[in-house]
Design a protein around this nucleic acid. Structure first.
Lengths: 150, 150
DNA sequence: TGCCATAAGTTTCATCATGAAACCAAAATC
DNA sequence: GATTTTGGTTTCATGATGAAACTTATGGCA
């Protein structure tokens, strides 16, 4: 990947988001973090990622404020990686990805992991609505661009 | 990127989704497709992506059923790339990414492109709720894994 | 009809990110 | 105190990526 062009300056919020977590492993790490993993070795084993790459990605995620590294034992050098509030705000992204996967990438009866509400054990819903509550889809919306600055 | 391990067989729907659209460019292409782009050169100019990579990504997206290639003119060889129904189901992913970006990656008054409802011109909402309508966050849910098969 | 510009790729080649494996230091365990 | 585990870093080979040149087909247009 030759020096990926940073999209930090892009006016599109999706692009900037991808700039931060759009790389292949980052979202998988975040997924595992949502699933309760905190330690280097947990991520490594779960993902089968190369150690150097994992180290690099964790560093980037911490830098971006998605994860915090806190000493696992007071005074120790080993870290626990935990989602920050910002990191937890990726929850909708994970849910959306999951629902897409469920809908299109599994055979009807194929076993899959499930995301359920702790309270009632039922799957959660994701709705995109207008201010008045109407459900909206891609054809009901427009993207208003930022006028090209000079 | 040495022969990325395919996650086709993973039991996690998010992982499979990332296997299909988790690569860096694919979601950017899909974003532009949601924005109405259809032609090779449009994507190329918009993204600044290398032509060979764009060609490869478009092929993969078509293969996965996210896009369809239809002849731009009857009998012609030039293609238009359009989102399939499956592709449009990525809408929530795009909205979730966008909202994350808006919330965390822009300065307060910084200009940004906006996604608005055609009908009322207002931004859309994204809600994750339990079956009974309660809003649920990451700490209200659990992931139930598929028992490790032997 | 013939000419030029553009669209849509493909090919070639250099480079950088990635993955594998070895290495290493600090903690934890025995 | 020795051994193992954890959490990395270093080294090196490979292959995905990007840039640019090349190719073919299409669209304009005079």
């Amino acid at each position: 990947m030759v020096a990926r062009k940073s999209l930090k300056g892009d006016h599109c919020p999706s692009a900037r988001a991808l700039d931060v977590i759009g790389d292949w492993w980052s979202l998988m790490i975040v997924r595992d973090a949502f699933d309760g993993m905190t330690r280097f070795s947990e991520f490594q084993k779960s993902l089968g990622i190369a150690r150097n790459i994992l180290a690099e990605r964790l560093r980037a995620l911490v830098e971006h404020g998605i994860l915090v590294a806190v000493p696992a034992t007071p005074g120790g050098t080993r870290q626990e990686y935990r989602l920050t509030a910002m990191g937890k705000d990726l929850f909708p992204v994970m849910v959306a990805l999951r629902q897409f996967g469920e809908r299109h990438l599994f055979a009807p009866q194929e076993p899959r992991s499930r995301l359920i509400d702790r309270a009632d054990g039922q799957p959660v819903r994701l709705d995109i609505t207008a201010q008045d509550g109407r459900a909206v889809g891609p054809d009901d919306t427009v993207i208003v661009k930022v006028p090209e600055a000079e």
